[in-house]
Computed example of a mutant assay.
Amino acid sequence: MNAHTKVAASVVEAAETRIAGYDWPALATELDGFGCAVIEKLLSPEECRQIAGLYPQEQHFRSHIHMARHGFGKGEYRYFRYPLPDLIGGLRSALYPRLAAVANRWNERMAIAMRYPATHAAFLDQCHSAGQTRPTPLLLQYVPGDFNCLHQDLYGDLAFPLQVAILLSEPGQDFTGGEFALTEQRPRMQSRVEVVPLRQGDAVAFAVHNRPVQGTRGNYRVNLRHGVSRLRSGMRHTVGIIFHDAK
């Protein structure tokens, strides 16, 4: 594993202690039933402000994307460079094993051969062997009128099927509008929309592409997309933790 992608053991241990305090069987049940689950108060208000405050500091990022130029919506985001900020890198490593257990169970139900290794370091080794070496965690910024079109974050042949978004701003105080939305398309049915209420520091774990649903004839796949509705006032920051690296 590249030295720049390693996360200090003490940082990971602190993040694992934080992550272990949640009811993961209940969160897995939410993911199974709805394709998303809220992890309440994952970050403190001070941690949220610290991460959001990184946005104008160029040295932390590898690229700056204006959504309108690519048809992604309206707004902007920046991809972090390695090494990631300690808090983000630690959470990325600590969240991965919990979500990998869900991902492996889903793949088994959908008859997908891929199984994800037990640690994030081992999964990144697989990504890098496949030529996917660029970090994908990102920091997003929205101002009034901005929105994010429904999409799927797939950056290469190896794409982890779940990701986590953490709201860094306080709804009703820092901004209005800007709701996180998830759509689910089932075969021969109209799409279902899930609007996820979040407070500052809350995270939502969600399916990136497909998830299994139990039908009368066994499991079948549904297709999911996620996005953010139009911001009506203020400024909204979110950090996205994507577990695979990109080409």
Results as ranks from 00 to 15, higher is better:
Gln50Lys: 11
Leu124Thr: 06
Ser63Gly: 15
Pro117Leu: 02
Arg98His: 15
Leu139Ala: 02
Ala165Gln: 10
Arg62Lys: 10
Gln200Asn: 13
Ile39Gln: 07
Phe34Gly: 04
Ala121Glu: 13
Asp32Met: 12
Asp125Gln: 14
Val12Asn: 04
Gly178Cys: 08
Val213Ser: 08
Trp24Lys: 07
Leu27Tyr: 09
Asn210Lys: 04
Asp86Thr: 02
Thr119Lys: 05
Phe180His: 02
Gly90Cys: 01
Ser233Asp: 14
Glu194Trp: 14
Phe61Thr: 10
His70Pro: 03
Tyr220Pro: 00
Gln190Cys: 11
Ile65Asn: 07
Ala159Arg: 00
His120Cys: 07
Tyr77Gly: 02
Pro25Glu: 10
Pro161Trp: 03
Met110His: 12
Met189His: 11
Pro161Lys: 03
Leu42Pro: 07
Asn148Thr: 14
Gln173Trp: 02
Asp202Ala: 11
His244Phe: 04
Gly53Glu: 11
Glu184Gln: 11
Thr119Gln: 06
Arg134Thr: 10
Arg62Tyr: 04
Leu158Asp: 00
Tyr22Gly: 08
Asn148Trp: 14
Cys149Glu: 15
Tyr55Pro: 02
His151Tyr: 13
Phe123Asp: 00
Glu16Gln: 15
Glu194Pro: 00
Glu13Pro: 02
Ser93Lys: 01
Gln57Pro: 00
Pro187Asn: 05
Leu224His: 12
Val164Lys: 06
Gly145Asn: 13
Glu13His: 14
Tyr79Phe: 06
Gln50Val: 10
Pro135His: 13
Arg109Ile: 01
Gln152Ala: 11
Gly234Glu: 12
Ala246Gly: 07
Leu150Arg: 09
Glu47Lys: 14
Ala52Thr: 04
His120Leu: 15
Gly90Arg: 01
Phe180Met: 06
Ala246Met: 05
Pro25Gly: 11
Ala101Gly: 12
Glu47Ile: 12
Tyr77Arg: 04
Pro117Cys: 02
Met1Thr: 14
Arg232Tyr: 05
Ala113Gly: 07
Pro56Gly: 09
